[in-house]
């Protein structure tokens, strides 16, 4: 099965939740130097709940799609829920299987999110 499913390609080509948040609660930049991927992510949190999250970045289709899908999913969730998100949860969101060399592309936005919630 190809990992370039329609959902992935759609989110890679038209990523949701891009841009900046005016007065973010927190902001972070994460890198994957080997691929040259870079994601800047802003979050707005009120009463321990994610109200908004936005990202900007460059990278492969998988990292872009992962950022887009993740930022869609996290809105409205509590910090507690998001802090406990695992690699497995991230893969469920993407609905594809990735080999060991590619999985880090999908996990980069999760790394950004979890750094934002610290």
């Amino acid at each position: 099965m190809t990992i370039y499913q329609e959902v992935i390609l759609d989110h890679a080509e038209n990523p949701r939740n891009t841009g900046n948040i005016q007065n973010p609660t927190n902001t972070v930049i994460v890198y994957n130097p080997l691929c040259g991927d870079k994601i800047k992510m802003d979050v707005l949190i009120k009463k321990d709940r994610v109200i908004d999250v936005r990202f900007q970045g460059q990278g492969c289709a998988i990292s872009k799609a992962a950022s887009s899908l993740l930022t869609d999913w996290v809105k409205g969730k509590t910090k507690e829920v998001l802090k406990n998100m695992t690699k497995k949860d991230m893969m469920k969101l993407l609905k594809i299987e990735l080999g060991p060399n590619r999985i880090k592309c999908a996990l980069l936005p999760l790394e950004a999110l979890q750094k934002l919630l610290i």
């Binding site: 990992i3 080997l34 040259g36 990278g59 492969c60 289709a61």
Partner: peptide
């Protein structure tokens, strides 16, 4: 992105390197 290129080639049993 080179990784996407290599990944799609890989689905056709073509092994190339992507990265630096």
């Amino acid at each position: 992105h080179p990784h996407d290129v290599a990944q799609i080639l890989s689905e056709k049993n073509i092994c190339v390197r992507a990265g630096n």
